[in-house]
Simulated assay, not measured.
Amino acid sequence: MQAMTVRPGSAGTLRVDDMGEPRPGPDDLLVDGLAVGVCGTDKEIVSGRYGWAPAGRDRLVIGHESLGRVTEAPPGSSFHTGDLVVGVVRRPDPVPCRACARGEFDMCRNGRYTERGIKEIDGYGAQRWCVEADYAITIDERLADVGVLMEPTTVVAKAWEQVWRIGQRAYFEPERALITGAGPVGLLAAMLSVQRGLDTHVLDRVTDGPKPGIVAALGATYHHDDIDTVAARLQPDVVIEATGAGPVVFGAIANTSTYGIVCLTGVSAAGRGLKIDAGAVNRELVLENDAVVGSVNANLRHYRQAADALARADKDWLAGLITRRVPLHRAADAFTAEPGDVKVIVTLDGSD
């Protein structure tokens, strides 16, 4: 069996290794891997800036955006041979903290959680893998070609849940949403916005390539002007921020409607300075009852929400997000950006 591995903390160590076959425990599924998605976190791990190997080892199997097919399932479980599944990324911390003890492990309070393919547990970037039945989610068979989009969809399912919960502090009937960033997370956030019936707008800096067409096919409006111009004109009720770029973040915060909500999902690079009028930002947040919230990761509830959202989506539209499929033996190619990339995946089943 082959798998993508790296030595966390060391750049240039990505390789495809021969490994022993996984041995499922009594409560585990054995799964044939079909594909894994490549995202910014994976690229940070490969570049040596992030990631932790399992205890007692120096290499980590990467890949947290999973898709596979069950080959063995525990007796009495709800899973069957042939089921299309994804594996949940995060596991609760062992203490557990009060959030993890209640199943809200995406909100872990002490940082002792672990994550498949990221933090101390091998990931799903292997031809075969095991996953606890309690941390696997079945998805619609019609999504076999695009189900690898499940994990990034969970991220925005949680983001939208956070927005709705905050909005319910008072009267809340949003009409217009602005999504900043037209990468996979931004586009999937826009998809959920459209499914909620909102007038949806997407802002990205590119003017060519597939992104404008993908947004148009969704029934949303694409913009490429600066954030202050676009947001000031739109006055969105909700902003899902998916770039992590400082000027975009603060431009969005400064230009929502009254009682606006900005949900930050993009992770900013450290060390970049930005001069802002902190007093003006504070004044607007207070006087307009605005809210800004950060959101990361997902729990089991969000995986189920994502599975429902993908099942309702246009499959052809989802397929348009996957712009490059790289076979496992050429996995390194997936970590080098090419013009027109939106979502790049590594196929694990021998398909090109």
Results as ranks from 00 to 15, higher is better:
236 P>F: 01
82 G>Q: 13
271 G>E: 08
83 D>M: 07
261 I>L: 07
105 F>C: 08
178 L>F: 09
176 R>S: 09
196 R>N: 12
4 M>N: 06
201 H>G: 01
128 R>S: 02
214 I>A: 05
320 G>R: 15
66 S>M: 03
34 L>E: 04
193 S>G: 15
183 G>W: 01
117 G>D: 09
204 D>S: 14
185 V>Y: 07
174 P>N: 03
281 V>H: 12
168 Q>I: 00
322 I>S: 04
69 R>D: 08
134 D>H: 12
135 Y>I: 02
3 A>N: 01
289 N>Y: 04
3 A>K: 14
59 R>Y: 04
216 A>P: 01
175 E>Y: 02
114 T>M: 11
295 S>Q: 03
266 G>R: 07
108 C>M: 10
238 V>N: 04
88 V>N: 12
6 V>D: 03
276 I>A: 08
74 P>H: 06
263 C>N: 07
96 P>A: 13
215 V>Q: 02
246 G>S: 02
42 D>P: 12
300 L>R: 14
153 T>I: 09
67 L>G: 05
300 L>G: 09
46 V>N: 08
149 L>R: 11
322 I>M: 00
143 L>H: 14
225 D>P: 11
200 T>R: 11
42 D>I: 09
53 A>M: 02
213 G>V: 06
78 S>G: 12
190 A>I: 06
79 F>S: 07
52 W>H: 11
245 A>V: 15
16 V>M: 00
31 V>P: 13
132 E>P: 13
2 Q>R: 15
63 G>C: 14
225 D>C: 04
145 D>F: 06
86 V>C: 15
227 I>W: 01
344 V>I: 13
156 V>T: 15
325 R>T: 05
300 L>W: 09
145 D>L: 08
45 I>F: 11
116 R>Y: 11
320 G>I: 05
328 L>D: 03
107 M>F: 10
186 G>Q: 04
99 A>P: 00
289 N>V: 01
149 L>S: 06
299 N>S: 11
235 Q>L: 07
194 V>P: 00
61 V>E: 00
156 V>P: 09
14 L>S: 08
130 C>T: 15
2 Q>A: 11
100 C>S: 08
225 D>L: 11
141 E>T: 09
91 R>K: 13
149 L>W: 11
281 V>I: 14
319 A>N: 11
125 G>T: 11
149 L>V: 12
306 A>C: 10
30 L>T: 03
298 A>H: 13
148 V>R: 13
123 G>E: 05
230 V>N: 02
35 A>S: 15
